[in-house]
């Protein structure tokens, strides 16, 4: 394999990894605070639809992004209400949000646009276009480093950079700020946080809303940056793959980056190498496309070592008695 092919493959890995990464970090905030979030998928889907629809009406991808985030935050608050305030089952609340998003996007999409649940094709300012980083043109001729800078690093849309910058930002928030310390504590032992005089409820809502924001960006990315419009169920299990990546990364930000890149790479390989042959045997397209899902199963089956989730995860906080 020569450099341009490798770069192309990595380039598309990065594009495919970006939404996973945003969703994965969303899950990280939520689960580190002790709130399991099965509903990443639903929040992303709702955000993707609202972003595309808003963008189609207003003609601005930025309004689309805001709309998508708003939709995702709204669902996050529903999850918060169910699992923090009302102390319900977090898994069931998450599943409900997924169903709700899947059904409502199709229904509202059909009634607004009549395109079978799709939004109209977006183009121009309705989408986030590729950005060219400084020096991309001038450095192009430099061997190896030049193409890496101008083909792999440069030329993505803004949200990709947001996704990747969110990794160090998350690390910093989690390990260098008071909020991060409290967030991690509340996922391990909420009673310790409570007796230290800090509100468990407020912290957990904070985490859930941050998850909403990140899922909102992920959704907007899917429909207004990576694609040119919303298609029914376009998240296609990305929320669940993000959860698998989160477990693979053992709920830590930097490993989350690598886990998401790995999933992105597998997806890119599946897209690029369709119809390859091993001897006389033609590898079915479906098999290649199934790669990320196969890895998901392998990870969730515990083949990558024991992952210990935050100790208070999934349990509503009730004072003893």
């Amino acid at each position: 394999m020569d450099l341009p092919v490798v770069l192309q493959l990595l380039d598309s890995s990065v594009r495919l990894a970006a939404p996973l990464l945003l969703a994965c970090l969303a899950g990280l905030y939520s689960e580190r605070a002790g709130i399991f979030d099965i509903g990443l998928e639903g929040k992303m889907l709702a955000a993707a639809f609202v972003a595309a629809a808003t963008s189609a009406y207003t003609g601005s991808a930025w309004f689309g992004l805001l709309g998508g985030m708003a939709a995702s935050i709204l669902l996050a608050l529903v999850h918060g209400l169910a699992s923090i305030t009302l102390r319900g089952n977090q898994l069931i609340s998450g599943v409900a949000i997924n169903f709700l998003a899947s059904g409502m996007t199709a229904l509202i999409g059909q009634s607004l646009f009549g395109l079978g649940g799709q939004t109209p094709q977006l183009d121009g300012p309705q989408r986030f276009g590729a950005l060219t980083l400084p020096l991309a043109e001038t450095l192009h001729g430099v061997p190896v480093l030049g193409p890496i800078w101008s083909d792999l690093v440069s030329g993505h849309n803004l949200l990709v950079y947001v996704a990747f910058l969110a990794v160090p930002a998350t690390w910093w928030v989690l390990y260098r700020t008071r909020f991060g310390l409290r967030l991690r504590a509340v996922g391990e032992n909420p009673a310790a946080v409570d007796t230290a005089g800090v509100s468990v409820v407020r912290l957990r809502y904070g985490a859930v809303v941050i998850a909403g924001v990140l899922c909102g960006i992920a959704g907007a990315y899917l429909s207004t940056a990576m694609s040119a419009g919303f298609i029914r169920d376009m998240t296609a299990g990305k929320g669940f793959i993000a959860l698998a990546a989160l477990i693979f990364a053992k709920w830590r930000p930097w490993p989350a980056l690598f886990a998401c890149l790995l999933f992105g790479l597998l997806e890119a390989v599946g897209i690029r190498y369709q119809g390859i042959r091993i001897g006389d045997f033609a590898v079915p397209v479906q098999l290649m496309q199934a790669l990320p899902y196969v890895l998901t199963v392998v990870i969730l089956a515990g083949f990558v070592g024991r992952a210990i989730p935050p100790r208070a995860g999934g349990r509503p906080y009730v004072k003893e008695r």
Partner: peptide
């Protein structure tokens, strides 16, 4: 009322941090 994966210092300052940065 301790957070077991945290260090002693982190447990001590939890809720009594002076400022937003650790």
């Amino acid at each position: 009322m301790l957070v077991e994966p945290f260090t002693v210092l982190e447990n001590v300052i939890l809720g009594a941090e002076n400022g937003a940065l650790l």
